Amino acid sequence: MSPTVARPTDNATGRTDRAAWAASHRVVARLATAEGRAEFDAMVAELHEHIAREEDGLFPASLTALSGDEWDRSMAAWRAAHPQG
């Protein structure tokens, strides 16, 4: 069974966004090259380091620096900005 790739669509019309569709194919083709894979691996490593800094530094620091009310306000703001969770 082959994986299904979602087609990028224009949310207003529901039609396939052909430019985005073509761009996604170029990205996949680039990942098939050694250079593209190396770039991807570097980006994943950078993202991992970024997340680690947040989880190991920023988040623990915020627990000690914010009051209960400040924490509640920050979580409410995050939920408002990310309604799908």
Rank of each mutant, 00 (worst) to 15 (best):
G36D: 04
N11F: 07
V28F: 14
A38D: 09
G57H: 04
R79A: 11
F40V: 00
W78Y: 13
V44Q: 11
A19H: 08
T16Y: 10
W21G: 00
L63A: 12
D69G: 11
V28H: 14
R79E: 09
D10G: 05
P83C: 07
I51S: 03
A77G: 07
T9L: 08
A38I: 02
H82D: 03
D17C: 00
A19M: 07
L66N: 05
A34D: 15
A20G: 12
L47W: 14
H50G: 05
P8Y: 00
H48E: 13
A80R: 10
A22W: 09
E46R: 11
V27P: 02
M75Q: 10
A80M: 04
A6W: 03
A32C: 13
M43F: 10
A29E: 15
E55G: 12
S67N: 00
A42G: 03
E49T: 07
G85F: 11
T9S: 09
L58S: 06
V27K: 13
N11A: 12
N11V: 08
G57W: 04
T13L: 08
D69H: 10
E49P: 00
S2I: 04
D17R: 05
R53P: 01
M75P: 00
A20M: 11
L66V: 06
D72N: 12
T33M: 00
E35A: 14
A52D: 15
F40G: 02
L47F: 15
E39Y: 08
R26M: 09
A77L: 05
S62R: 15
R18D: 12
L31R: 14
A32L: 14
A32T: 10
R7N: 12
R53F: 13
H25T: 00
H82F: 08
R18K: 07
E54M: 12
A34R: 07
V27W: 15
T64I: 08
S24M: 13
R7T: 14
D41W: 02
S24L: 10
A38Q: 10
Q84Y: 04
L66W: 06
A29L: 12
D69W: 14
P83Q: 03
R26D: 13
P3E: 10
P8A: 00
S62F: 13
D41S: 06
P83Y: 01
G36A: 03
R53H: 12
W78D: 02
W78F: 13
R30K: 12
T64F: 04
E39C: 07
N11M: 07
E70T: 04
G68T: 15
G36S: 10
T9D: 01
E46V: 03
R37H: 10
D17A: 01
I51P: 00
E70S: 06
T9I: 14
G68H: 14
P83N: 03
L63E: 15
H50I: 06
H82K: 05
V44E: 11
E55Y: 10
E49Q: 11
L63S: 05
S62V: 05
A12C: 00
A61S: 14
T4F: 11
L47D: 13
E49N: 06
R53V: 06
R15M: 13
H25A: 09
R7V: 11
E70W: 05
R30T: 14
W71E: 07
R79D: 13
A42W: 02
T16K: 09
S24C: 11
W21R: 06
P8W: 01
D17M: 04
P8K: 01
T9P: 00
A12T: 12
L47K: 10
